[in-house]
């Protein structure tokens, strides 16, 4: 689960840049710290995962995927709603993960060739990654002692 494999870069975007962006979002907006890790060896939370995704379409086509254990997603939502994790509804948790995914995509968009259109975020249950395309970059993070994964996929250009 949550493997980090060597990947080939096709656009000017490093894992370091991806980490800096994630660190900035979690720190600035949520006052939560993230640390970069190479692998996650502990068990994943039994409550399952949420996957947020936004698509980028234009001269470069692909997607940004944020994969988050549900307990961490709940803590993240609580930080945004200034409430307790237990008070968060499923809708509020999905809204928070969608907004963070959209923020990742929006900031990455500025590093991609123009024109580039950013889709609204979609959030689904489970560990769900796009079936088409190849991984350009990915990072694994630890936040509140739980894993968090961000993957950038590239899709083939339409002719």
């Amino acid at each position: 689960m949550l493997p980090i494999a060597p990947v080939q870069n096709a656009i000017t975007l490093s894992a370091d840049a991806l980490f800096e962006l994630a660190e900035s979002i979690w720190h600035s907006l949520l006052e939560m710290e993230v640390q970069r890790i190479d692998h996650w060896s502990a068990d994943l939370p039994e409550d399952g995962m949420l996957t947020g995704c936004v698509y980028l379409d234009g001269d470069w086509r692909g997607s940004v995927t944020l994969i988050c254990p549900k307990p961490l997603a709940r803590q993240t939502a609580a930080a945004m709603f200034k409430a307790t994790p237990a008070a968060m509804t499923e809708t509020e948790v999905q809204d928070a993960i969608g907004e963070l995914t959209h923020m990742l995509g929006g900031n990455l968009k500025s590093l991609l060739p123009t024109p580039c259109h950013l889709s609204p975020p979609a959030v689904v249950e489970g560990y769900t990654i796009p079936k088409k395309g190849r991984i350009v970059e990915q990072i694994l993070l630890r936040c509140e002692n739980q894993p968090l994964q961000i993957i950038l996929f590239e899709r083939e250009k339409l002719l």
Partner: peptide
């Protein structure tokens, strides 16, 4: 459109 962002 995000309730989370409006809350922040």
């Amino acid at each position: 459109d995000s309730r989370a962002m409006r809350s922040l």
